[in-house]
Amino acid sequence: MFEAVAFYLFAFLTIAMFFIAVTTSQALYALTALAAGMIFISAFFFILGADFLGAVQIVVYSGAVMALYAFGMMFFDTTRDVKEKNGNKYIVIGLSVISAILVVAIFSAPIVSENITALYPMVEGAGNTQEVGLVLFTKYLVPFEVAAVMLLVAMIAGIVLAGKDMDLSLTLLDDKEIEEIKNKKMKKVL
């Protein structure tokens, strides 16, 4: 009973927040609605017993990702109203419905077949964080390391693209201009 009440409450809140995020014409409203929706989604993870995933959701999404987006919104001109595409409404709605039906079909196919067995079953008597650690550092160690390398690459890319000297960009200058800057400052730009 309690689970049902929590599920419906947070489902309504999440759908409302994300609907605001995609329909509002103010970028600031979209950002705050998206952040609220992320936190409401972590509630589903806590209901489902995935405590660690819920904590990661709050830390990564409403901490890191939302801070990055807030930085981006300060950089760009977001005070004016956002224009929207005036495409054919019927095509858009039709494509959305078709995609949604496709997703339902993909996810309901294993339920219909009813022959799924747990590949890495949950350990009895261990907390969710402990179970996650057991599986992540044994079966999924290589993908974990690859994800770490990918995050490093993304971090370096972000620093190079948007790093220091915000008024000039190394990716947009010619080689000659970069040489001039180097000679002027008598030191390496990078």
Binding site: V60, Y61, V65, L68, F71, M150, L151, G158, L161
Partner: peptide, 13 residues
């Protein structure tokens, strides 16, 4: 989640 975080970093850059 890891892919989403790196996508945001590179995309914003």
């Amino acid at each position: 989640i890891a892919i989403a975080a790196s996508e945001v970093a590179v995309g914003l850059g």
